[in-house]
Structure formats: structure tokens, C-alpha cells
């Protein structure tokens, strides 16, 4: 009962979603997102969303095993993207990839 209340509290209070750590980079035509909690435990239940600066969702995928998720780099990513990760426990974090990070040249 107490755990259920605590989970509800976490879901209802986005301000508590602040201990997830996300890192992302581009490799071999893919964005690789790595998500873990502050205690180094990988985040494995949740979603990765690749968004434009205007917050348009360009791509999404469930969190992968060991907290690592791969998404194909699409032409729509060329102006840079924000990689958002949100977990079932109500934690969220993001990482910004610029065109240079994505290997996009002018």
C-alpha cells in the first residue's frame, strides 16, 4: 500500500523526476542513448523520444536492455535533436545533440 502511494506520488509530482542521468551520442548512423539512475542502476523500463527543438517527436523507442537504446539517425534530425528519456517511475532527463554531434555537415 505504501509503495503504491509512493509510486503515485512520484507520477503526480514531476518535480521529483530529477535523478535519472541520460547521455547520448551518434555512432554508425544511430543515436545511442544511455540512461541510468544516480546509483548507476540502468534504467530499463520507459521510453526514449527524439524530439526537434520545437518539441516535435521525430522518433521513439522503448528503453533497451542495460539502459542502452539505439535509434536510426533520420534526415529530420539534421538541425539537432533533444533525446528525452522518461521512466515508469516518473523520472526523466534529456540530452542535446547538435548537428555537429550528429556528424551533419553543411
Amino acid at each position: 500500500m505504501i509503495r503504491a502511494l509512493c509510486v503515485l506520488l512520484c507520477l503526480a509530482t514531476p518535480a521529483l523526476a530529477h535523478r535519472l542521468i541520460v547521455f547520448a551520442y551518434a555512432e554508425d548512423g544511430q543515436i545511442v542513448g544511455e540512461a541510468k539512475f544516480g546509483n548507476n542502476r540502468p534504467a530499463t523500463v520507459g521510453e526514449v523520444r527524439v524530439e526537434s527543438e520545437a518539441e516535435e517527436v521525430l522518433s521513439r523507442a522503448p528503453l533497451g536492455a542495460a539502459g542502452v537504446t539505439r535509434l536510426e539517425v533520420l534526415p529530420e534530425f539534421s538541425a539537432g535533436v533533444v533525446v528525452h528519456v522518461s521512466t515508469e517511475g516518473g523520472h526523466s532527463d534529456y540530452w542535446i545533440l547538435t548537428p555537429a554531434d550528429l556528424g551533419v555537415t553543411d
Partner: peptide, 29 residues
């Protein structure tokens, strides 16, 4: 903005405060 981050990334020297100041600096390379 992402384009601004790109310009910042190309600076000769980037001065950061640390202590968690300017959270965006920990959200990009």
C-alpha cells in the same frame, strides 16, 4: 537553442561556473 550550442561548442574557450550552475552545460557535449 541547439544552433547556439553549436556556436558555443566551437569557441576557443568556454567558461563554466560549476556547482550545477547552468544545467544545460551538463546536458550536451
Amino acid at each position: 537553442a541547439i544552433a547556439e550550442i553549436g556556436q558555443i561548442q566551437s569557441a576557443d574557450l568556454i567558461l563554466l561556473n560549476g556547482a550545477g550552475y547552468a544545467g544545460w552545460t551538463a546536458k550536451t557535449s
